[in-house]
Nucleic acid binder design. Structure first.
Lengths: 209, 209
DNA sequence: TAGATTGTTAATCGATTAACAATC
DNA sequence: TAGATTGTTAATCGATTAACAATC
């Protein structure tokens, strides 16, 4: 019944599915086997109606009276989000942040793994980080094409991020997670998402005195 | 004319202001002195009407015909967001990520600075990271109260994040930026924001094949 | 059966956009 | 003056919620 993506699904709905998946995995780890939109809603601080509405865009995954099988809903959400496989990723920029991300263990069980790492600094190229040799950014296009990688993370500084993004797109990358504090232009059809702690901090200080 | 926060401002509007501020600072660094909602909209990929509407919640900052003085609008937005001062921050958890954040230079000119760092691991306590001595988490409440800190970042693992958040709230923290991949419950009146790269990656892979 | 919870519809709520008078 | 752009209003668009029949 899933994969009925004929009608266009609102992006805001898609954006909530990963949180649902994350919570379901947590419940599973805690030994739960069933849940309901009510329980999920309480834990995620989202209304139960919204969760049911969101899921209903993709099919019928629950049972009246008893709710959802956690295992089954995890499977369905992984199918929908295409994380029922492991996506290889490229990482560009090995400063403190790139180093931390290279060593981050959290990608592994959620559909992602780092496959290659690039930097522009000759003193870093050839060094190892988290078991990966740091490659010269001049090899970026060749390597990414060869490995057929579609997902990349940018951890260079703001001034170089657009340049790196252009290179990545030319290399065939389809999704970019950008940690540099700058808006990046990409051709339509290329996905881009941002990680920007300062923007989140400033959002919060609005409410402080 | 600003600080007319009598009517309730939608949180989604507040959440966009930091991006406006970031872009204005970039334009200023590039030597620009004036801009318009049209130019900002193009650069931020937001409609000009939305930018004008958002700003209009807080006052009148532009001139017909000529647009906005970049310096003046930066000042106004910094006032509105309360980043016309520097907020001291606490950092809890010194893994790879905490280490990267401790060394991050980007906070400095945007209204934030790290003032103290905590960990629970005896082998880390007493060590230095980015010029800060790592303190025992058992001292968290005492130190944060003494320094009168209101903003904190959590970079511990998912299983310990709620615990740390509870401690922070007890210590008087009002805003939390949480890097652990878990939803945290905080009392009303306490701000919380999340940094979660996996959720952003899974959002993007939905659109990949 | 009685209780619980789904998926879905319709109503409500809120956010975005288009348009324009005002004016620099 | 002519051109540009603001701040604001009203219209449009889209998202959330409440309610409920269906059914496990």
């Amino acid at each position: 019944m899933q994969n009925m993506q004929n009608k266009q699904i609102p992006d805001i709905v898609v954006g909530r599915l990963p949180s649902y998946l994350q919570m379901l995995k947590r419940l599973k780890t805690a030994g739960e086997t069933n849940t309901s939109s009510k329980e999920l809603g309480l834990k995620l601080e989202i209304s139960a109606a919204q969760i049911r509405k969101d899921l209903s865009h993709f099919g019928e995954f629950g049972k009246q009276g008893t709710g959802y099988s956690i295992n089954y809903l995890i499977e369905c959400l992984e199918d929908i989000l295409h994380v029922n496989k492991v996506w290889d990723m490229a990482l560009v920029g090995v400063g403190f942040l790139g180093h931390a991300i290279a060593n981050f263990q959290g990608f592994n069980h959620h559909g992602f793994q780092i496959k290659c790492i690039f930097d522009v600094d000759p003193s870093k190229i050839g060094q190892f980080v988290a078991g990966h040799i740091i490659l010269d950014i001049s090899e970026l296009e060749k390597v990414i094409r060869k490995l057929n990688i579609q997902v990349a993370m940018i951890t260079v500084d703001a001034d170089n991020a657009q340049d790196v993004a252009d290179k990545l797109v030319r290399a065939g990358i389809k999704s970019i997670l950008n940690y540099a504090p700058v808006i990046i232009k990409v051709p339509s059809g290329i996905q881009i998402q941002y990680i920007n702690p300062i923007i989140k901090l400033q959002h919060m200080t609005y409410y402080l005195k």
